[in-house]
Design a protein around this nucleic acid. Structure first.
Lengths: 220, 220
DNA sequence: CGGGATCCGTTACGATACTG
DNA sequence: CAGTATCGTAACGGATCCCG
């Protein structure tokens, strides 16, 4: 069942690892930061994690109060982060910052969906956002739609189409990664790999300003 | 040898976990943040990690450029963080922040040495330090001696006696943990669990000010 | 078809013993 | 002290099957 391979050390780092240190666990949380997800969405995004492992991890995460099982539309079961689960955002962000500095693997597997980018982008934006930023944007990354909202100094990014976007930004995953990891500059990224559709004049500048500052965090 | 159980996903978080996600790896880095260490020191601090695992992990960390093997005094071999290895500090700090909010285990094992506290404390201090702070302190935690230095806006904490401490602070590990995790207030911690020996008048105030602000980071 | 449970071969982990 | 060698066990990975 639940892997009893725990450190049980009198140390907060070890206590944290006893909750999220197992294989796959942090990646499951990563995907859930993009919003509630179904079992198969998770299985898909994690490129074929064995279903029994996913079951085990979801079980363990529930016991530790990091996620909750919920009934969604049409009786589908959804998994979503609890308040406490959301506190893993900065761990994941620091890991992304760290991991982004390593060269990419030879033949990397593409994640089954792009939920993966939501934590990193929203955490980076959260670090640089000002209270004045106020917009709702739809990001279309390789066709997958996200809602990026900045309001009252709070940023959120969810894996869902936007309801009333001030601006729609269309881009690709590889280019976005390359820009985040500093391989290509921001200006070149925007001019070559981004298309914008503006519904509320001026909001596209707010969006690009926020994303630009966020990417500087990675460059640091 | 090196665990070929890698995600190889096109995602910076997964790339990071492929470097530090194996069992014990982050705890080894944790201890090395307190300064160079010998094989047996690490083995000891990690409460009996199997020696072959420690060998494997050190090997992997070396290959990834996170640590280096060095020759110390009297021909002893030391392991120490590289520049890149030091970038794991914030990951560990966020993990500590996260893990500290869980209730302690029933019968936790005490780490074999207290190297474990150096990362967390120095990272917390780094977040709140001002450029004016300027002192060298010796922390004696359950008899183990650390050098906490604040100079020019940079904080470091090493597992070694201080050479010329402005102030010596004597305390206990459990009390320090309890204060860090907000179980007891800072004032009560200082009055009941801390003894100070002041060599340079006024520096003890700088130290307590810095530690106080650092602990507020945990409380947040 | 989505959401799992079951089974089984493989791999990494954990403990102990042993060596330069 | 700094590892290497061996071996039993637990966790992982992949496939298949089941149930609503």
């Amino acid at each position: 069942m639940a892997g009893p391979r725990r450190y049980k050390l009198l140390c907060p780092i070890a206590r944290g690892l006893d909750r999220v240190g197992d294989r796959w666990t942090l990646l499951i949380l990563r995907d859930l930061h993009a919003g509630p997800a179904r079992f198969s969405e998770l299985q898909n995004g994690l490129t074929g994690i064995a279903p029994n492992l996913l079951t085990d991890r979801l079980q363990q995460l529930s016991e530790d109060g990091l996620i909750e099982k919920r009934e969604g539309q049409h009786g589908v079961t959804l998994y979503e982060l609890t308040e406490r689960g959301r506190t893993t955002r900065d761990i994941l962000f620091e890991l992304a910052l760290f991991g982004g500095r390593f060269p990419a693997d030879e033949d990397p597997k593409r994640p089954g969906n792009l939920r993966t980018i939501a934590v990193t982008l929203s955490a980076a934006c959260q670090r640089v956002v000002t209270a004045e930023a106020d917009f709702e944007a739809e990001l279309q990354v390789d066709g997958e739609k996200f809602t990026l909202t900045a309001r009252g100094g709070q940023v959120s990014m969810l894996y869902a189409p936007a309801l009333a976007p001030d601006v729609v930004m269309i881009t690709g995953y590889e280019a976005l990664l390359a820009a985040s990891e500093g391989e290509i500059g921001l200006e070149r990224y925007v001019t070559e790999h981004v298309r914008l559709e503006v519904n509320t004049e001026g909001k596209e500048l707010e969006l690009l300003d926020l994303l630009g500052k966020a990417m500087e965090v990675f460059a640091g």
